[in-house]
Nucleic acid binder design. Structure first.
Lengths: 202, 202
DNA sequence: GCATACCCTATACCTTGGAATAGGGCTATA
DNA sequence: TATAGCCCTATTCCAAGGTATAGGGTATGC
């Protein structure tokens, strides 16, 4: 029987979900409520056939937390499960090496078939999260660089800090901040960060 | 058999949850994925014995959305179910007339007994969300004025603007910004805004 | 080749944010 | 009454954010 680890900090959600997957009768499910606990369980019980990590739980970060898990659960698939349906998160997760991206808006039966698919070594991600390169109507159409800067802003970093991280001059960051703020119709960086969060851009 | 309505936009979470509650054998469960759909169902099928509303779903607002639901589902309890465990949201929900507040971090069995309690006309809310005197590391415990300023920050307003709105001097705003940033362990106003959003403080 | 879009840099200037320090007035409570 | 917490103000100073303008380098596509 295939062994699955589900990590999510919402006890209610995780346990009912684990129950649901167990009821399919094909899987044994273990649970963790944060990243550290997940890593501990993997080391204690051996690698799982599939690990599902909530994108938002204590200790979890992208890409760091995902990379740690991939390393610990060597050679077995790790997928991200996320409440907020964000194409950008999906892309970054897959680019980092995740085997899949499961939004919490998918139907339960779809989840089961996705789990089977992942266990078979496949990659799972809903269509709409992959072909969203093109902006579908309300996407403000930020350039890759502007997205980099926006992420920095959202983490509360100063321009100088972002500049160091991206290895460019501070003035350049200021330029990006200005243009991305205009595109988002934000009045300043803080506003831009909040808008980005609102429309699930980050 | 008591009739329950669950409204949550995450299909996966809602359906597994509905399954779980149905399995208790005592309840019939209907589902909605946003506020409007909930109101429609109540009007079409008659009032439910209990309505559980997700705090974060399309159309949902506090207090407006809750008030609408309370009115439509006249004389029957409506409870808020929330992913992020925020004492402030809990207090506002209960103050508006919600019969209960259920964080998604509670255990599934606790949920079932809470549902029974609510159906019996009781009020349910975890202790720790009501006696928020003690801040257990998580609760930033901001003063009312600091909350005012925080709201301004989150709207992308400048200090000068917030000062005008609250009819005080700009320096005063700066003071509040500094102290609330310290309490939230934020490095600046943007960071504070993002943290506030993360923990659903606003 | 030419236009376009993106990315980077530079200079200069002004506004805003934020730290530090010091107090006064108010209210609730021990 | 004294203590504490909150709210407001003040002054000073430096760091950071933001605007404006001008340009260079490099791809891509017509």
């Amino acid at each position: 029987m295939k062994r699955i680890l589900i990590a999510d900090d919402h006890d209610l959600v995780r346990e009912t979900l684990a129950d649901y997957i167990r009821n399919a009768g094909e899987f044994s499910v273990d649970q963790a409520s944060n990243l550290d606990e997940s890593l501990d369980l993997i080391q204690k019980n051996g690698t799982y056939d599939l690990v599902l990590l909530d994108y938002k739980m204590p200790g979890m970060t992208l890409p760091e937390g995902l990379l740690q898990t991939l390393e610990t659960n060597a050679d077995h698939p790790v997928a991200i499960i996320s409440g907020t349906a964000s194409p950008d998160v999906a892309r970054r997760a897959l680019a980092t090496g995740a085997a899949g991206f499961l939004p919490k808006t998918i139907a339960p039966e779809t989840l089961i078939s996705a789990v089977r698919h992942l266990l078979g070594g496949g990659v799972y991600a809903p269509q709409q999260f992959l072909e969203s390169d093109r902006n579908d109507g309300q996407n403000p159409n930020l350039t890759p660089r502007e997205m980099d800067v926006l992420r920095g802003i959202c983490e509360g970093k100063a321009n100088k800090e972002i500049a160091r991280d991206l290895d460019v001059q501070e003035v350049t960051i200021k330029l990006h901040v200005k243009t991305l703020s205009r595109k988002l119709q934000a009045r300043n960086r803080t506003h831009a960060a909040m808008i980005a969060r609102d429309i699930d851009l980050i």
